[in-house]
Amino acid sequence: MATEILSGKVHVQTTINGEQVDFLAEPRESLLEVLRDHLGLTGAKEGCNNGNCGACNVVMDGALVNSCCVLSVEAAGASIETIEGVASPEGLHPLQQSFLENAALQCGVCTPGFIVAAKALLEENPNPTEYEVRWWLAGNLCRCTGYDKIVRAVLDAAERMRAEA
């Protein structure tokens, strides 16, 4: 019986990257599954499905979250920002540009999570130290870069954003 209850679909209304979105989801589905499999927003990645790697990072009502650990129905009424909403029609976000120029990605699968997480950091702390960047990004695993160029890219973007502000 529990299975039937869990597999029954629920109508959820939410806001994603500024646009109102409606979807039907099973309560047992995570927000990550809904983003990827129902809404085609595949920028958030599944690396662990239990909150250890940060590859699925999105911002929900202003808080950085692992979307694999948020149930789909919890998105009701929330405002969600994903990697797909980071660039604007005018161009890339300074973090995205900085990641490119600093060679801060290799395979790229963790990159969306890092950019979403770093953006949340810089909104909270526009002038972080290297230690603060490393501390904040400790929830995002990257196996390719050794983090060096990622940390530099975030510090570089912070500097650019302060200059533009």
Binding site: G43, G108, P112
Partner: peptide
């Protein structure tokens, strides 16, 4: 690079 910083790059599970 561009597709990888915007989330548009298509990995196997995508």
């Amino acid at each position: 690079g561009l597709e990888k910083v915007t989330g548009e790059a298509r990995y196997g599970s995508d």
